[in-house]
Design a protein around this nucleic acid. Structure first.
Lengths: 204, 204
DNA sequence: ATAATAGTTGACCGATTGGTTTATTTCGCG
DNA sequence: CGCGAAATAAACCAATCGGTCAACTATTAT
């Protein structure tokens, strides 16, 4: 009946970018509206609060990156290769972000999640939920690797959480140090964590 | 010549606690002054800005916890025991914090560091500097363990950063999930990361 | 065509933000 | 003692915060 609008997506895009680049607290609703080129009245037509917007932004972002994960973690790819591709992707993506805005940004779930945990319960829960979804990719890759005798991981759920924590910690450090270097060790660290048998495939 | 004051310490104490419990952005100067029972005029007599206060708070906190690290990481303690004691301490401390304020708070360096990185360069640098100081404890423990053939860590510096990243990631996850559970796996994860030889000392 | 409705706009709000100012109080030291 | 500098107090500031509102506009199903 009425007209259609893309303001919602423009707002979630702007919010994700701005809050990722700085922080939830330092990003004002006015900033977001300005970047999205949407007036504040429209903002509150679509979202009931700034927190509500951020929750929608995290979900929208997940729906986008999920496709990448489905690709990288396809069961047709050998399990350890999935992980290796993932680590490589993380490095590439952060490299790209650094070129685009001069900063290593880390993971938007983790930085925003740990910023607002004690204040905005909704955002915290959404971040936690999305993290849980992602860990499933790691988990099944690790389970497959274990089934093939490539790693020693009788409990893939726990191992997946460990690898995820290690990656998040490394991303956080990369953000704080504004350096890509820590990200180059992701594979080596994860291989240790997983007890990957035989480090080197001994050339081709 | 003039009178002495403990307002400085009261302010750094209050700032560290409040910002740790919520966040840098969500903690106002007024909040800090109220908690410290110090008037704002005095605040700006001692510190030139809110960021300046937080930098001082992080440094003051380090000077306090450093003593604990010196104790836990004493060279008189077997190297792997140092790490085990450290993981145990992290769990105990977070348990205590949860009892005191109902929340798993994680690491104040990491949460505040990753919140303000792109905005308050001074805070970021201070957090990074203190992290660097701490990693030295891990590094020498790992180097000693390697020298004794307990772990496979030819490059203790890199391994130390890996273990630290893993611990930080786990703490961040514990904060976001408001759960102590992930912290119980610290030893198992770190042992994997370090390639500790023989998992069990086979009873006494 | 038009009525109903989703979307848009910009002015507006009280509260709070980080920070300043000026006057006053305190007290160690010569 | 009393001087001078450090510390305190409270009032004050412009700017910004998240959020509201009523009027207005564009669309589209009928």
């Amino acid at each position: 009946m009425p007209r259609v609008s893309d303001a919602k997506e423009k707002l979630t895009d702007a919010a994700l970018a701005l809050i990722w680049e700085s922080s939830y607290g330092a990003t004002s609703v006015d900033d977001i509206c300005a970047k999205a080129n949407v007036k504040k009245g429209s903002f509150y037509h679509f979202f009931k609060s700034k927190a509500d917007l951020e929750i929608a932004a995290l979900e929208a972002n997940w729906q986008r990156v999920k496709q990448r994960w489905n690709d990288l973690f396809s069961p047709t790819v050998p399990p350890l290769q999935r992980l290796e591709d993932y680590f490589e992707y993380v490095l590439q993506r952060q490299t790209q972000l650094k070129e685009e805005c001069g900063l290593v940004l880390g993971c938007p779930l983790c930085s925003v999640g740990s910023e607002v945990t004690t204040q905005e319960a909704g955002i915290r829960e959404k971040a936690l939920e999305i993290m849980g979804r992602f860990v499933k990719y790691l988990e099944s890759a690790i389970r497959d690797a274990h089934a093939q005798g490539l790693v020693d991981a009788p409990d893939p759920k726990i191992k997946a959480r460990m690898v995820y924590a290690y990656v998040q910690g490394t991303l956080a450090h990369a953000r704080i140090a504004n350096s890509l270097e820590p990200l180059r060790e992701l594979k080596a660290g994860a291989w240790g964590l997983l007890g990957v048998r035989q480090s080197e495939p001994v050339a081709a």
